[in-house]
Amino acid sequence: MSALITGIHHVTAIAGSTQRNIDFYAGILGLRLVKKTVNFDAPEVYHFYYGNDAGNPGSILTFFPYEGLVNGRHGKGMLTTTSFSVPLEALDYWQERLKRFDIAFKPPRERFGSELVIYFEDDDGLGLELVFTDSDQRKGNSSGPVPAEMAIRGLYNVEIWEEGYERTAGILTQQLDHVLVAESGNRFRFAATNSPGNYVDIICSPDSLRGLAGSGTVHHLAFATPDAASLQAIRNRIMPLKSNITPVLDRKYFSSVYFREPGGVLFEVATASPGFSVDESLETLGEHLQLPEQFETRREELENKLLPIRVNYDQFK
């Protein structure tokens, strides 16, 4: 039987400033704002989706920007670092770009003998990495302020801190179709598909404090599954674990379920379809506020409550 999980779908994080978030991810990092919508559970708050030209699964980082929210704390039971893939030849370009925008970063270091990694943080303290590699042949955003040949290709891996790796590894391998593909010291790497954009690294960090939610932290990690049938099959797998898995939810651009893994990280499984072009053409993705059908009657009210934003690439070229 074919695997029900194909890799990572997206990562969703929490921010403390709406415009600053746009400037950092669409401006400095050069990702495409592929969707401007609202939080399904709090429609007075934006939900931004950033990714490649088409917003393909595995390229997407999303945010709930709560204006003025206090910072959280990285720690155990949390996805602490989200990594992006960039071409190896772009190392000097990105170091100079980060310096240009006064973003502190750690010197490049090797990981697993084949990856060159730079760690930095956004304005809220969210842990980010650039992984410089020639193993990723995906296309990045070709219309942003970063030249296409230097652009981010998509997600590369995520890093989860846990007391120990065994319980989380158990659900990854037994219910979510992952296998252990590499390990080094206290880092254990799992993947459903052994390719950039699909790596889940568990870091055994028993001496760390537990993470605290807030600005600059990750809300959840979403895994990709092909369609409604495979999503239901995954839900059936998770049900016996008594992990409070949700019913299947309609998120407009995908259907999904949520549950917490044993270490405390919120996991989601999301379908690959219908995708982000269901309400906008590929050419105009992210240009207009899109609302779930249940909030359309409140459009005028919500547009008055949501802060106006601007996407100005010129100042970031």
Rank of each mutant, 00 (worst) to 15 (best):
A3K: 15
L4I: 08
I5D: 06
T6M: 06
A13F: 06
I14H: 04
A15L: 05
S17P: 09
I28V: 13
I28T: 06
L29E: 12
L29A: 10
G30M: 11
R32W: 08
V38C: 04
F40N: 02
D41N: 05
A42G: 04
P43M: 01
H47S: 09
F48N: 06
F48E: 07
D53H: 10
D53F: 10
G55M: 04
F63I: 12
P65Q: 12
G72C: 14
H74E: 05
G75N: 13
G77Q: 04
G77W: 02
L79E: 08
T81L: 12
T81D: 13
S83Y: 13
S83Q: 15
S83T: 15
S85D: 04
L91N: 08
L91A: 11
L91D: 09
Q95C: 09
E96C: 08
D102R: 15
K106H: 11
R109D: 05
G113H: 01
G113L: 01
G113I: 00
I118M: 04
I118G: 03
I118C: 04
Y119V: 03
D122Y: 11
G125L: 02
L126K: 02
T133M: 03
D136W: 11
Q137R: 11
R138T: 11
N141K: 01
S143H: 02
G144E: 01
M150V: 00
A151R: 02
R153S: 00
G154F: 02
E159S: 14
I160Y: 13
E166A: 13
T168G: 01
L176Y: 09
H178Y: 11
V181D: 06
A182M: 06
E183K: 07
S184K: 06
F190I: 03
S195Y: 12
D201K: 03
C204P: 03
P206S: 05
G214Q: 01
G216K: 00
F223M: 14
A224K: 13
A224Y: 12
P226Y: 08
D227G: 06
A229E: 08
Q232T: 02
I234G: 04
N236Q: 09
R237M: 10
I238V: 14
M239H: 10
P240Y: 08
L241V: 10
L241D: 05
K242T: 10
N244W: 08
V248H: 03
V248P: 01
D250H: 07
K252N: 11
S255T: 06
F267V: 09
V269L: 06
G275S: 10
F276Q: 12
E283T: 00
L289F: 05
Q290I: 10
P292Q: 10
E293Q: 15
R299K: 08
E300L: 13
L306Q: 09
L307Q: 14
P308M: 04
Y313A: 10
D314S: 14
Q315P: 07
